[in-house]
Protein backbone atom coordinates (compact mmCIF):
# COMPACT_ATOMS: atom_id res chain seq x y z
CA UNK A 1 0.00 0.00 0.00
CA UNK A 2 1.27 3.46 -0.87
CA UNK A 3 2.02 5.71 2.05
CA UNK A 4 -0.56 8.43 2.61
CA UNK A 5 -1.43 11.15 5.03
CA UNK A 6 -4.14 10.69 7.55
CA UNK A 7 -6.25 13.41 9.09
CA UNK A 8 -9.29 13.28 11.28
CA UNK A 9 -12.13 15.62 10.43
CA UNK A 10 -13.55 17.44 13.41
CA UNK A 11 -16.52 18.84 11.55
CA UNK A 12 -18.49 18.40 8.36
CA UNK A 13 -16.93 21.59 7.02
CA UNK A 14 -13.45 20.23 7.61
CA UNK A 15 -14.31 17.10 5.75
CA UNK A 16 -15.68 19.07 2.80
CA UNK A 17 -12.62 21.32 2.71
CA UNK A 18 -10.33 18.32 2.73
CA UNK A 19 -12.03 16.34 0.00
CA UNK A 20 -12.00 19.36 -2.28
CA UNK A 21 -8.34 18.58 -2.87
CA UNK A 22 -7.48 15.99 -5.50
CA UNK A 23 -6.08 12.71 -4.30
CA UNK A 24 -8.05 12.87 -1.07
CA UNK A 25 -10.53 10.24 -0.04
CA UNK A 26 -12.90 9.82 2.85
CA UNK A 27 -12.52 6.82 5.12
CA UNK A 28 -15.13 5.55 7.54
CA UNK A 29 -15.45 1.77 8.02
CA UNK A 30 -12.67 1.16 5.53
CA UNK A 31 -13.90 -2.35 4.74
CA UNK A 32 -13.70 -1.75 1.00
CA UNK A 33 -11.30 1.19 0.75
CA UNK A 34 -8.48 -0.46 2.72
CA UNK A 35 -8.96 -3.58 0.64
CA UNK A 36 -8.71 -1.54 -2.59
CA UNK A 37 -5.66 0.32 -1.33
CA UNK A 38 -3.90 -2.93 -0.41
CA UNK A 39 -4.37 -4.17 -3.95
CA UNK A 40 -3.27 -0.90 -5.51
CA UNK A 41 -6.64 -0.35 -7.18
CA UNK A 42 -6.76 3.06 -5.55
CA UNK A 43 -3.88 4.99 -4.05
CA UNK A 44 -5.02 8.20 -2.36
CA UNK A 45 -2.45 10.71 -1.11
CA UNK A 46 -4.58 11.52 1.85
CA UNK A 47 -7.37 9.97 3.88
CA UNK A 48 -9.88 11.98 5.84
CA UNK A 49 -11.34 10.01 8.73
CA UNK A 50 -14.93 11.12 9.28
CA UNK A 51 -15.85 8.52 11.89
CA UNK A 52 -15.97 11.12 14.65
CA UNK A 53 -18.60 13.28 12.97
CA UNK A 54 -22.04 13.23 14.59
CA UNK A 55 -23.72 11.43 11.69
CA UNK A 56 -24.56 8.11 13.32
CA UNK A 57 -28.13 8.75 14.43
CA UNK A 58 -31.24 6.81 13.52
CA UNK A 59 -34.45 8.77 14.12
CA UNK A 60 -38.08 8.88 13.08
CA UNK A 61 -39.09 12.08 11.32
CA UNK A 62 -42.58 13.36 10.49
CA UNK A 63 -42.54 11.56 7.17
CA UNK A 64 -40.14 8.73 7.60
CA UNK A 65 -36.94 7.40 9.04
CA UNK A 66 -33.59 9.18 8.94
CA UNK A 67 -30.39 7.16 9.14
CA UNK A 68 -27.06 8.92 9.49
CA UNK A 69 -24.31 8.06 7.03
CA UNK A 70 -22.04 6.78 9.79
CA UNK A 71 -24.59 4.42 11.34
CA UNK A 72 -22.98 0.98 11.30
CA UNK A 73 -24.60 -1.71 9.19
CA UNK A 74 -24.90 -3.94 12.26
CA UNK A 75 -26.52 -1.18 14.29
CA UNK A 76 -29.05 -0.32 11.58
CA UNK A 77 -29.93 -3.98 11.07
CA UNK A 78 -30.89 -4.33 14.74
CA UNK A 79 -32.37 -0.91 15.39
CA UNK A 80 -35.89 -1.14 16.78
CA UNK A 81 -37.25 1.66 14.57
CA UNK A 82 -35.79 0.00 11.48
CA UNK A 83 -37.15 -3.38 12.48
CA UNK A 84 -40.60 -1.95 13.12
CA UNK A 85 -40.88 0.43 10.17
CA UNK A 86 -38.55 -0.99 7.52
CA UNK A 87 -37.83 -4.66 8.22
CA UNK A 88 -36.84 -5.13 4.57
CA UNK A 89 -33.79 -2.94 5.13
CA UNK A 90 -32.78 -4.98 8.18
CA UNK A 91 -33.12 -8.19 6.18
CA UNK A 92 -31.02 -6.82 3.33
CA UNK A 93 -28.31 -5.67 5.71
CA UNK A 94 -28.15 -9.00 7.51
CA UNK A 95 -27.76 -10.76 4.16
CA UNK A 96 -24.58 -8.81 3.47
CA UNK A 97 -20.97 -9.47 4.44
CA UNK A 98 -20.21 -10.91 7.90
CA UNK A 99 -20.97 -9.76 11.45
CA UNK A 100 -17.42 -8.38 11.78
CA UNK A 101 -17.67 -6.41 8.54
CA UNK A 102 -21.13 -5.14 9.44
CA UNK A 103 -19.64 -3.88 12.71
CA UNK A 104 -17.24 -1.74 10.67
CA UNK A 105 -19.16 -0.81 7.54
CA UNK A 106 -21.28 2.35 7.52
CA UNK A 107 -24.40 3.23 5.57
CA UNK A 108 -22.57 5.78 3.43
CA UNK A 109 -19.63 3.46 2.89
CA UNK A 110 -21.96 0.68 1.82
CA UNK A 111 -23.35 2.95 -0.89
CA UNK A 112 -19.86 3.96 -1.98
CA UNK A 113 -18.41 0.44 -2.18
CA UNK A 114 -17.02 -0.54 -5.54
CA UNK A 115 -17.90 -3.50 -7.70
CA UNK A 116 -16.38 -6.88 -6.82
CA UNK A 117 -15.58 -7.66 -10.47
CA UNK A 118 -12.28 -9.60 -10.50
CA UNK A 119 -10.97 -7.61 -13.43
CA UNK A 120 -11.48 -4.39 -11.49
CA UNK A 121 -9.46 -5.73 -8.56
CA UNK A 122 -6.60 -7.21 -10.56
CA UNK A 123 -4.36 -4.36 -11.65
CA UNK A 124 -2.70 -6.55 -14.28
CA UNK A 125 -6.00 -7.00 -16.14
CA UNK A 126 -7.86 -4.58 -18.40
CA UNK A 127 -10.71 -2.66 -16.75
CA UNK A 128 -12.39 0.50 -17.92
CA UNK A 129 -13.71 1.19 -14.46
CA UNK A 130 -10.29 1.11 -12.84
CA UNK A 131 -8.34 2.51 -15.78
CA UNK A 132 -10.54 4.04 -18.49
CA UNK A 133 -9.61 3.03 -21.99
CA UNK A 134 -7.96 -0.30 -21.10
CA UNK A 135 -11.01 -2.35 -22.09
CA UNK A 136 -13.37 -4.62 -20.18
CA UNK A 137 -11.82 -7.88 -19.07
CA UNK A 138 -15.14 -9.39 -18.12
CA UNK A 139 -16.96 -8.83 -21.40
CA UNK A 140 -15.18 -11.73 -23.12
CA UNK A 141 -13.89 -13.22 -19.89
CA UNK A 142 -15.32 -14.86 -16.80
CA UNK A 143 -18.59 -12.98 -16.36
CA UNK A 144 -20.63 -15.32 -14.20
CA UNK A 145 -21.29 -12.65 -11.57
CA UNK A 146 -21.97 -9.89 -14.06
CA UNK A 147 -24.83 -7.71 -15.25
CA UNK A 148 -27.85 -8.72 -17.30
CA UNK A 149 -29.43 -5.25 -17.23
CA UNK A 150 -28.15 -1.84 -18.23
CA UNK A 151 -24.60 -2.81 -19.11
CA UNK A 152 -22.61 -0.94 -21.72
CA UNK A 153 -19.91 -1.84 -24.20
CA UNK A 154 -17.48 -0.42 -21.65
CA UNK A 155 -18.46 -2.26 -18.50
CA UNK A 156 -20.68 -5.11 -17.36
CA UNK A 157 -19.92 -4.94 -13.63
CA UNK A 158 -22.59 -5.07 -10.95
CA UNK A 159 -22.98 -3.07 -7.76
CA UNK A 160 -22.43 -5.51 -4.90
CA UNK A 161 -24.56 -3.99 -2.14
CA UNK A 162 -27.55 -5.67 -0.51
CA UNK A 163 -28.45 -2.66 1.59
CA UNK A 164 -28.81 -0.43 -1.46
CA UNK A 165 -31.19 -2.91 -3.09
CA UNK A 166 -33.40 -2.70 -0.03
CA UNK A 167 -33.16 1.09 0.06
CA UNK A 168 -33.93 1.36 -3.67
CA UNK A 169 -37.09 -0.70 -3.21
CA UNK A 170 -38.14 1.45 -0.28
CA UNK A 171 -37.94 4.77 -2.19
CA UNK A 172 -35.11 5.96 0.02
CA UNK A 173 -33.50 9.31 -0.61
CA UNK A 174 -29.78 9.93 -0.18
CA UNK A 175 -28.91 13.24 1.43
CA UNK A 176 -25.60 14.69 0.35
CA UNK A 177 -23.87 17.94 1.12
CA UNK A 178 -21.27 19.95 -0.73
CA UNK A 179 -20.01 23.46 -1.20
CA UNK A 180 -23.34 24.39 -2.77
CA UNK A 181 -25.24 22.99 0.19
CA UNK A 182 -27.45 19.98 0.61
CA UNK A 183 -29.22 18.04 -2.08
CA UNK A 184 -31.41 14.96 -2.09
CA UNK A 185 -30.95 12.15 -4.58
CA UNK A 186 -33.42 9.27 -4.84
CA UNK A 187 -31.61 6.00 -4.13
CA UNK A 188 -32.69 4.71 -7.53
CA UNK A 189 -30.81 7.59 -9.14
CA UNK A 190 -27.82 7.69 -6.83
CA UNK A 191 -25.89 4.98 -8.65
CA UNK A 192 -25.54 5.21 -12.39
CA UNK A 193 -25.29 2.86 -15.33
CA UNK A 194 -21.80 2.46 -16.75
CA UNK A 195 -22.39 4.01 -20.18
CA UNK A 196 -19.18 5.50 -21.50
CA UNK A 197 -17.89 6.36 -18.05
CA UNK A 198 -17.82 3.23 -15.94
CA UNK A 199 -15.19 4.88 -13.74
CA UNK A 200 -18.09 6.78 -12.18
CA UNK A 201 -20.18 4.52 -9.99
CA UNK A 202 -22.67 7.17 -8.92
CA UNK A 203 -23.86 10.76 -9.24
CA UNK A 204 -22.13 12.06 -6.16
CA UNK A 205 -20.30 15.14 -7.39
CA UNK A 206 -16.62 15.66 -6.60
CA UNK A 207 -16.34 17.27 -3.20
CA UNK A 208 -19.72 16.03 -2.00
CA UNK A 209 -20.27 14.01 1.13
CA UNK A 210 -23.13 11.67 1.98
CA UNK A 211 -24.65 12.66 5.30
CA UNK A 212 -27.58 10.31 5.55
CA UNK A 213 -30.50 8.54 4.02
CA UNK A 214 -34.24 8.93 4.50
CA UNK A 215 -36.87 6.29 4.01
CA UNK A 216 -40.45 7.56 3.68
CA UNK A 217 -43.03 5.81 5.85
CA UNK A 218 -44.96 3.09 4.05
CA UNK A 219 -47.30 0.17 4.58
CA UNK A 220 -44.82 -2.52 3.56
CA UNK A 221 -43.61 -3.67 6.98
CA UNK A 222 -46.02 -6.60 7.14
CA UNK A 223 -45.28 -7.93 3.68
CA UNK A 224 -41.67 -7.55 2.71
CA UNK A 225 -38.83 -9.94 2.06
CA UNK A 226 -35.21 -9.93 0.97
CA UNK A 227 -34.12 -13.00 -0.95
CA UNK A 228 -30.47 -13.54 -1.70
CA UNK A 229 -29.24 -16.42 -3.82
CA UNK A 230 -25.52 -17.11 -3.52
CA UNK A 231 -22.90 -19.80 -3.90
CA UNK A 232 -22.71 -20.47 -0.18
CA UNK A 233 -25.28 -19.88 2.46
CA UNK A 234 -23.67 -16.88 4.09
CA UNK A 235 -20.77 -14.47 3.56
CA UNK A 236 -20.95 -14.37 -0.23
CA UNK A 237 -22.04 -11.86 -2.82
CA UNK A 238 -25.36 -12.33 -4.57
CA UNK A 239 -25.78 -14.24 -7.78
CA UNK A 240 -29.17 -12.55 -7.73
CA UNK A 241 -31.02 -10.86 -4.90
CA UNK A 242 -34.54 -9.49 -4.72
CA UNK A 243 -36.10 -6.93 -2.39
CA UNK A 244 -39.86 -7.32 -2.47
CA UNK A 245 -42.41 -5.22 -0.60
CA UNK A 246 -46.18 -5.45 -0.87
CA UNK A 247 -49.07 -3.50 0.54
CA UNK A 248 -51.90 -6.03 0.50
CA UNK A 249 -55.47 -5.25 1.38
CA UNK A 250 -58.33 -7.73 1.09
CA UNK A 251 -56.14 -10.12 -0.86
CA UNK A 252 -55.40 -7.47 -3.49
CA UNK A 253 -52.11 -5.69 -3.97
CA UNK A 254 -52.44 -1.94 -3.39
CA UNK A 255 -48.80 -1.12 -3.86
CA UNK A 256 -45.67 -3.06 -4.72
CA UNK A 257 -41.94 -2.39 -4.64
CA UNK A 258 -39.33 -4.59 -6.29
CA UNK A 259 -35.61 -4.17 -6.73
CA UNK A 260 -32.84 -6.57 -7.67
CA UNK A 261 -29.19 -6.91 -6.81
CA UNK A 262 -26.42 -8.74 -8.66
CA UNK A 263 -27.92 -7.90 -12.03
CA UNK A 264 -26.83 -4.34 -12.86
CA UNK A 265 -24.34 -1.54 -12.25
CA UNK A 266 -26.87 -0.16 -9.77
CA UNK A 267 -29.67 -1.51 -7.60
CA UNK A 268 -32.17 -2.47 -10.29
CA UNK A 269 -35.63 -1.20 -9.52
CA UNK A 270 -38.45 -3.02 -11.38
CA UNK A 271 -41.00 -0.24 -11.94
CA UNK A 272 -42.97 -1.95 -14.71
CA UNK A 273 -43.24 -5.19 -12.80
CA UNK A 274 -44.46 -3.26 -9.75
CA UNK A 275 -47.18 -1.59 -11.84
CA UNK A 276 -48.33 -4.93 -13.14
CA UNK A 277 -49.05 -6.09 -9.60
CA UNK A 278 -51.30 -3.22 -8.57
CA UNK A 279 -54.87 -4.33 -8.13
CA UNK A 280 -53.96 -7.97 -8.70
CA UNK A 281 -54.49 -10.78 -6.20
CA UNK A 282 -51.39 -11.73 -4.24
CA UNK A 283 -51.02 -15.06 -6.01
CA UNK A 284 -48.24 -16.96 -7.71
CA UNK A 285 -49.73 -16.20 -11.12
CA UNK A 286 -49.54 -12.46 -10.51
CA UNK A 287 -45.99 -12.84 -9.27
CA UNK A 288 -44.90 -14.92 -12.25
CA UNK A 289 -46.38 -12.36 -14.60
CA UNK A 290 -44.52 -9.57 -12.83
CA UNK A 291 -41.29 -11.57 -13.00
CA UNK A 292 -41.73 -12.02 -16.71
CA UNK A 293 -42.23 -8.29 -17.19
CA UNK A 294 -39.20 -7.61 -15.05
CA UNK A 295 -36.97 -9.59 -17.38
CA UNK A 296 -37.71 -7.52 -20.46
CA UNK A 297 -34.50 -6.21 -21.95
CA UNK A 298 -32.28 -8.61 -20.05
CA UNK A 299 -29.11 -9.66 -21.86
CA UNK A 300 -26.70 -12.36 -20.77
CA UNK A 301 -23.06 -13.10 -21.49
CA UNK A 302 -21.16 -16.36 -21.81
CA UNK A 303 -21.17 -17.38 -18.16
CA UNK A 304 -24.21 -15.63 -16.68
CA UNK A 305 -27.04 -16.90 -18.88
CA UNK A 306 -28.36 -18.74 -15.84
CA UNK A 307 -29.41 -15.39 -14.40
CA UNK A 308 -32.08 -15.19 -17.09
CA UNK A 309 -33.69 -18.19 -15.37
CA UNK A 310 -32.62 -17.51 -11.81
CA UNK A 311 -33.76 -13.86 -11.73
CA UNK A 312 -37.45 -14.37 -12.58
CA UNK A 313 -37.61 -17.46 -10.35
CA UNK A 314 -36.15 -15.40 -7.52
CA UNK A 315 -38.57 -12.52 -8.07
CA UNK A 316 -41.50 -14.91 -7.86
CA UNK A 317 -40.05 -16.58 -4.80
CA UNK A 318 -39.37 -13.28 -3.03
CA UNK A 319 -42.91 -12.10 -3.73
CA UNK A 320 -44.32 -15.35 -2.38
CA UNK A 321 -42.34 -14.83 0.82
CA UNK A 322 -43.40 -11.18 1.04
CA UNK A 323 -47.02 -12.20 0.63
CA UNK A 324 -46.63 -14.75 3.39
CA UNK A 325 -47.30 -17.61 1.01
CA UNK A 326 -44.13 -19.50 1.94
Amino acid sequence: MKQFQYVRAASQQDALAAIAKPGTKIIAGGTNLVDLMKRGVTAPDKLVDITHLPLKGIAATKTGLHIGTLALNSVVSENSLVLAKQPLLAMALKAGASPQLRNMATVGGNMMQRTRCSYFYDTTMPCNKREPGTGCGAMEGYNRMHAIFGASGQCIAVHPSDMCVGLAALDAVVIVTGKKGERRIPMTEFHRLPGDHPENDNHLAPGELIIGVEIPDNNFAKNSYYLKVRDRQSYAFALVSVAAALDISGGLIKQARLAMGGVAHKPWRLFEAEKSLIGKPATEDSFKNAAQIAMQGAKAYEYNAFKLRLAPASITEALKHAAGAV
Partner: peptide, 20 residues
Protein backbone atom coordinates in the same frame (compact mmCIF):
# COMPACT_ATOMS: atom_id res chain seq x y z
CA UNK B 1 -6.59 -15.52 -22.14
CA UNK B 2 -4.14 -14.57 -19.41
CA UNK B 3 -3.59 -17.97 -17.88
CA UNK B 4 -4.52 -16.34 -14.61
CA UNK B 5 -6.91 -16.99 -11.76
CA UNK B 6 -9.88 -14.66 -11.55
CA UNK B 7 -10.91 -15.82 -8.08
CA UNK B 8 -7.66 -16.10 -6.16
CA UNK B 9 -9.06 -14.84 -2.88
CA UNK B 10 -11.36 -16.22 -0.20
CA UNK B 11 -14.22 -13.95 -1.20
CA UNK B 12 -14.47 -15.45 -4.67
CA UNK B 13 -13.07 -18.95 -4.05
CA UNK B 14 -15.65 -20.17 -1.60
CA UNK B 15 -14.73 -22.46 1.25
CA UNK B 16 -17.65 -23.85 3.23
CA UNK B 17 -18.46 -21.73 6.24
CA UNK B 18 -20.52 -22.31 9.41
CA UNK B 19 -23.86 -21.77 7.66
CA UNK B 20 -23.12 -24.53 5.14
Amino acid sequence: RYGKYVNSNLGDYHLATHAD
